[in-house]
Design a protein around this nucleic acid. Structure first.
Lengths: 121, 121
DNA sequence: TAAATACTGAACCATATGGTTCAGTATCCC
DNA sequence: GGGATACTGAACCATATGGTTCAGTATTTA
């Protein structure tokens, strides 16, 4: 299911793999901000922040609009849906496998208790 | 909420930002595999695949065990929970904002229709 | 119109990533 | 024991990433 590549997912995950960028997303979730706002908040040069915003834009997680000399950044589109969908699918699938494993382990532990408790901890 | 860095999240997202690695996770979700298995499946050298598995291991998404000369790889721990949790939180938060936006847009469109339909498409 | 503000682009830097090859080492099996 | 198998480690390579500085350009504003 789902052929591997899908470069959009790549871009989304890569964009999320940076603390500063996740911070920017959190902030934009609360309030629209300019590049200057963000750069100040995260203690970084304008140029540096512009790059981060660029990465988020490319991933479709943020949209920006330039009004006069100010570029306003907002949480963008629903690209996060794709990411969430991927995670959810495998998360659920794997949890089923984990549940099975849990049962096996539980049984083993119960057997151990019955057998006598020489090797605890 | 949630201070930005959290390098474990960084590692998890970074690990997921690669199609091959997501492919490996999918496969391991179905069946335990050796490095050789994985390398063949994804058309890559052993060394190359070992690196990918290493990245997934570091992120806690995969665990491995060496038995004799074979290293077996399995879906590891529930680190994906952390990722899913992060996504879910913001996903939900943002969707609320999107819903508001949707209403505004809808109202605008209805007004447009009332005003006369010069600019359809 | 001049100064301040907000951004952009090019160039640079150190380090990380995704891959390879090649030369081991360890294990299994005849 | 000797060959095949399965991996490991070091070295290398090209490109990407996360940042910087510095020199613009465009837009406000006094």
């Amino acid at each position: 299911m789902v052929q591997y590549p899908t470069t959009r997912l790549d871009a989304s995950f890569a964009a999320l793999a940076d603390g500063t960028r996740r911070g920017v997303l959190e902030r934009l979730g609360r309030t629209e901000s300019s590049i200057t706002d963000l750069a100040e908040t995260f203690g970084m040069t304008l140029t540096g922040m512009r790059k981060h915003v660029g990465v988020l834009e490319e991933a479709g997680l943020v949209t920006t609009e330039k009004v006069g000399r100010v570029r306003y950044c907002r949480i963008g589109a629903r690209r996060l849906d794709e990411v969430a969908a991927w995670i959810d699918t495998y998360h659920q699938l794997w949890n089923e496998r984990f549940d099975e494993l849990d049962k096996v382990i539980e049984e083993l532990q119960q057997k151990e208790q019955l057998d006598g408790c020489t090797n605890e901890q």
